[in-house]
Every structure is written in structure tokens, then in C-alpha cells.
Simulated assay, not measured.
Amino acid sequence: MKTLQASARPATRAWLAVVAMAASPLLASAGDLSATYRGKPVTFGQGQAHTEVRTDNAGKVAAISIVLSEQALTGLPAAKMAPAYLLRMPAKGPRTVVDHVVINWEAAGHPPPKIYDVPHFDFHFYMVKRAETMKVRFNSDAESADPGQQPPAELLPAGYILPPGTAVPKMGVHAINTKAPEFQQQPFTATLIYGYYNKRQTFIEPMVALSFLQSKPAFSAPMERPASYSKAGSYPSSYSVSYHPDSKSYEIALNGFQ
């Protein structure tokens, strides 16, 4: 190599310089670990739904999301069927605090009346295994207000409460944000719920009105975060609801992991 450099003609040196310049972007991109990992799709309405995990250029989790094809909002079941759709996390990529996702389609909404009694989706990002959620039992929906279900203060974000009427079998108890717009006499569009069972955090739940999704939004909002979490790991600081015209899909995402 020393001989080549010593004897290289000017034209040869120029060619080598061009090769080196062309190679440098490739070397820079080789260190970029950003990627998108997709879970196995499931049938949803007349379309499909799947999970996604996106990483930043350092390979750290940047977003965990649910993606619905445009056709997923049509052909949804009637209220009396109240289906739940289980979505598995991607088989490849980094492990996250989210174990699995369940989408509950609420064709007629649910209590409280005049707030969440419109057609909407409950997007449950569970931090516990599916077998554990299936064992969740309550004698009454009022048990969410019982002392035995109230988590330590450090696990509950500021402004959130666990009122009676939010204990749901095979889910948990639902903590609501009393500062959310829908509790300030504004229409419900999208909101963020935290879920618990036996004083432990078990899920994070964006709830989104069907009409809001159909409006093809570009919505993002910060999340109130608790002082600590039951499960060690990185957690989101914001969530978003958006429509992507290029792929004709809707995305409900947890973002800003810290």
C-alpha cells in the first residue's frame, strides 16, 4: 500500500479521493440503528391492525404504536358483540415495557354518560402478560374506589383519580385525568387513561372517538407521568393520534420514551 501511494499518479490520487468521499456517507449511516419493527397483523373491521416499535439512530425505543389500515374503520361489529382484538408485539427488535396490546371497540361507548358514551376505541398497551390480565376479577365496577385498589401516590400521575365505576374484569381499574377537556365541558376526542390492578400499574390506554379518527387528525399531547412505575423500563412522555395519507393508515402512538 505504501508503494501504491508513493507511485500513484495525480489522476490515480484524485480517483482515490473520490472513492473516499463517496464511502464516507456509507460509513456514517452504518452507525444509524433507527428501524421500524412490525407485529403480525390481525383482521380489524374490513382492514387490518398491527403493532409497531420504532427505534432512534442509537437503537433506543422512540415510539410504540398501533397502526390501523384505512379500511379498519368500516364494517365494525354492532354494540352487542363488543369484541376485543389482541395484537402481539413485534417478534424482532428491542424489548419494551409493553407486553401486548388489546383494542376494545366500544360501538355504543361506555359510562360516564354524556362523556364517553359515543362510539370509540380503547387502546390498551399492557405492561403485564396476557395470562395475568385474564385473571383480573372484580365483584363490582365500584371496586375501583376501594382502598385495596388505590395505588401508592407515586404511581398515580398528578390530576388522576380512581373513581368508582371503572373496575373492569380482564382489564383492571381505570384512572381518569380530571383535567382532561372532556371533563371541562368539551367534546371527547382523545384522552389518556392509566390502568392498575392490586395497586400495580398494568396498562396505558389512549381512548379515541371514532369520529375523531375519521377526521384524519394530526394530534399530539404530552402525558402526565407518575413519579415512578411498577415495572422498570423506559416510558412515554406523550401520545399521538394521526392519519398518514401516504400509507392510508391511522396510527395511535406512545412517544418520547424516557
Rank of each mutant, 00 (worst) to 15 (best):
H50P: 04
A11C: 12
P163C: 14
L162R: 13
R95P: 03
L68H: 08
K80F: 01
Y197W: 02
Q46T: 08
Q258D: 10
E205K: 02
I176S: 03
G148C: 05
P226T: 07
M21K: 06
A30M: 12
Y37V: 04
K129I: 02
R130P: 02
T74L: 15
A82R: 13
W15G: 02
R95E: 14
F203E: 08
A158D: 09
T96A: 07
G172Y: 08
A142Q: 15
L156M: 02
A209T: 01
P187L: 04
K248C: 00
Q71Y: 06
G195C: 02
A91V: 00
V136A: 15
K216F: 03
P181V: 09
N177R: 12
R137E: 03
G148E: 00
T55K: 05
H244N: 02
Q186M: 13
W105T: 02
G109P: 07
S34C: 06
F203D: 11
N139Y: 10
D141F: 04
D56F: 05
H110Q: 06
P77Q: 01
E106K: 12
F183S: 03
A58Y: 13
P206V: 14
A72P: 06
D117H: 06
K114S: 14
G148V: 14
P10M: 01
I161L: 13
S238A: 04
F188M: 04
N177V: 00
P245R: 03
S220A: 15
V128W: 00
A78H: 14
P163R: 05
K248L: 01
A175P: 09
Y126L: 15
I103T: 13
A190E: 04
G165T: 07
G148N: 11
D117I: 14
A23I: 10
S34T: 07
P157G: 08
Q214R: 15
N255I: 10
A209G: 02
A167S: 09
K80G: 09
M81T: 03
L156V: 05
L254P: 06
T55M: 00
F188N: 02
K60W: 09
T202M: 03
P90F: 05
F219P: 00
